[in-house]
Design a protein around this nucleic acid. Structure first.
Length: 271
DNA sequence: ACCCAGGAAATTC
DNA sequence: GAATTTCATGGG
């Protein structure tokens, strides 16, 4: 089996990055070793010192995986820049310095974060898994790709009953149909000014401000996005004295992920 | 039984 | 228009 290796990797913790609520398809199959599917490729990833090892991927996928783990961005420099803005920000960044913002497939991010609404992370992962098992192309070893918009577009909401996403079924189908028809063009949205991009995503039923911000940050790599969920609203009020997220600047999205993870791991700070 | 979960649509005032 | 209710499902 082929193996892809990236040398001299800094500021990457697989555990912190793959289990911080930004993605839902990775499973830790051994200590520090994760199996998942990205763009239809099954892979097992692990760190060997400062080497990132991707088992199951070939050399022709080097660019795709470097992009997925955002290896071209200097997260140490980002952390230093953000840490200077607020002391609690510095503490959150220090708590999990190995978090990176993944470059997930836009359509997968759109559907995943539609599912996320009024839901918890564990159950989101279960719904996404069933969605893939039932409607994603089988890619060997019992693994499945994330379903395409084309595949989901021909279904009716009731066809999603086995994934048990409840009232979100019709949102998922609406999103798939609008993407498949071209009414929503995710790659076009990637290049729009932030507010215009958000408004375009909100044409999908079930996509409000928060879900749109998540799609922009995790699916379209708009690092200036700052999703505000219940955790983040509490954190900004309690730990940042109601500071305006815009103060975090061009890397607000990275700040958001540090703060979200820090808050989730320290719920006692909000009692 | 009740409340909450990385919210948003539908309804009501 | 702004405030409230409802929407499935599962776990604590």
């Amino acid at each position: 089996m082929s193996e892809l290796i990236f040398e001299n990797i800094r500021d990457l913790s697989l555990g912190e990055t793959l289990d911080c609520g930004q993605c839902f398809r990775w499973k830790e199959i051994a200590d520090g070793c994760f199996r998942g599917v990205v763009r239809g490729v099954v892979a097992t990833v692990s760190m060997d010192g400062d080497r990132l090892v991707i088992d199951g991927a070939g050399e022709e996928q080097r660019g795709m995986w470097a992009d997925y783990f955002d290896l071209s961005l200097d997260y140490k420099a980002v952390r230093e820049q953000l840490s200077a803005i607020h002391p609690v920000m510095a503490e959150a960044a220090r708590f999990a310095p190995g978090i990176r913002i993944l470059n997930q497939e836009p359509f997968e991010a759109l559907i995943s974060f539609i599912i996320s609404q009024n839901n918890n992370i564990k159950r989101i992962a279960g719904i996404v898994e069933r969605l893939c098992e039932h409607f994603g192309e089988e890619i060997g070893a019992g693994e499945h790709a994330f379903p395409t918009a084309e595949r989901l577009a021909v279904l009716e909401p009731d066809d999603l009953e086995p994934i048990r996403a409840g009232f979100r079924h019709r949102y998922i189908i609406d999103a798939a149909r609008k993407v498949h028809s071209g009414e929503i063009d995710l790659e076009y949205i990637r290049g729009l000014p932030y507010d215009a991009a958000r408004a375009e995503l909100m044409k999908v039923t079930g996509v409000g401000v928060k879900v749109a911000d998540c799609v922009l940050l995790y699916g379209l790599h708009r690092l200036d996005g700052f999703p505000l969920d219940v955790w983040m609203k509490r954190a900004m009020a309690a730990l940042f004295d109601g500071m305006d997220p815009a103060a975090f600047g061009d890397y607000a999205g990275v700040a958001q992920q540090y703060i979200f993870h820090y808050s989730r791991m320290h719920p006692e700070k909000f009692l």
